[in-house]
Amino acid sequence: MAQAHDQNIARIRKYVADAREIQDDLMDFDASGTEARLEQTVRELRGRVQEQRAALEKLRRASKIDIEQVAYASDEPREKLKQILAVKEAYDQLTPTTTYLPPKGSILPALLAARTLQQNIQASKEAIASTQEQIAKQEHALRREEENLHDARLITKAMESRIARLRAQHEDRSQKTPAQLAKELIVAKRARKEEYEEEMKRLGEDLNVFINDHLSAMLAAEEFGGPVVGDMLDVENDTLAAGFTKKGKARSLKKPVADKTRQRRIDQIWGNKPSIENEEEEPLTEAEAADFEMRQLIENLFALLMARGGKEYFVLERDSAASRFLVRAKIAQFHPKDAKKLRLIDFGRELDD
């Protein structure tokens, strides 16, 4: 048994040695002789090409058949049969012919293998790029679906919470009498009304502060031919007293403007307005006159809105900076056919009825 085992080991080792020798013979590419073998291979291929050309030329001279006509099947049955027989005879002659193989030591197999390997590498790179692009698209689609799933879960959670609240309210109401429900509804309506009144009061105070501290001076500047409201944020009283040029720039204040001149100019624009309370009937300044006009216009528009439901227009005495500002701020709108008519925009309806 030991002797048989040793013989098997010896055969395996001999097989390995023979295989390595064969592999070394196949892969024996000497760098120093590569160029010479390449030239030899090129000469062999050129020789084969010359042989094929010579054979083709010999065939052309020996045959009177037009190759271009033979390349296409004839419509005539007999001629077509002759063509088929000729093709069969050619195949029969070529079948026993030995396939051309490059001689030992030729570098042609290595070149063919290198070309095939290069084609496979290029195809693999293109496949990798295409796969990466598809992966990027799939990842983008996956993120979008995850976002949609997250939104759907949030909506589902909110709907479930809403349904639970409605069920609880329904169960609570089912246990109460109509009188109790009516009383609770009245209390809730009154509480909401008080909240709305407090909110309106707060917003009204904020509006008054905004008009008094910022808007009134800019409205007065626009009335005197100055920049439109918003273009000059800080307008001083001295600037309003000096006035503006025809190009809308503030005049230089070299000397104080007389009170009579200022009052006459105020009366020409705003007319005679009542004096401010608790100031001993002192005349209004330009900013105070614009402030009074804006407040009066807003009060008139609100009064008309509450009385007529927002469908009627308020007739303006003149085209003022206050009315133009309300229109630019999307708070009011002019009549489509009459610019002297103005009304507040009902945000619960369309802009145009």
Score class of each variant (00 low, 15 high):
Q122V: 15
F302M: 14
L108C: 06
E195K: 07
R37L: 07
S130H: 09
S275E: 06
L112E: 05
P178T: 01
D267M: 09
Q296E: 09
R60I: 03
P227C: 05
E79D: 07
G33W: 15
Y15I: 15
L305S: 10
E277Y: 12
M200W: 11
A110E: 08
L59R: 13
R251T: 00
H170D: 04
L81F: 11
L45V: 03
E57H: 07
E199D: 03
R78P: 00
D291M: 11
I211G: 01
H140R: 14
E236G: 08
L219D: 00
E89T: 08
D18C: 03
P274R: 12
E194N: 06
E35Q: 14
K58F: 13
N278T: 04
Q93S: 01
A321E: 04
T261K: 09
Y196W: 07
L219F: 02
A31D: 06
D6K: 14
R46N: 06
E293G: 00
L45A: 09
A289T: 00
A86K: 02
Q40T: 07
S320H: 03
A188E: 11
I22E: 03
L26D: 05
D18G: 08
E76H: 11
D352S: 07
L56V: 08
Q134V: 07
E35N: 06
M294Y: 02
L219V: 01
Q52H: 11
R20K: 10
L233R: 15
Q296S: 10
S323K: 00
K247W: 08
L326C: 06
R265M: 07
E146C: 10
E89Y: 13
P77F: 06
N120F: 09
A220T: 02
R251M: 10
D213Q: 11
S63H: 07
I22Y: 08
E205K: 09
E195W: 13
D213S: 12
A329F: 15
Y91V: 15
A332K: 03
A90G: 06
I345W: 01
D6E: 09
I9P: 00
L101T: 15
P96F: 12
K340N: 04
L301Y: 03
S252E: 08
R143I: 15
V70R: 15
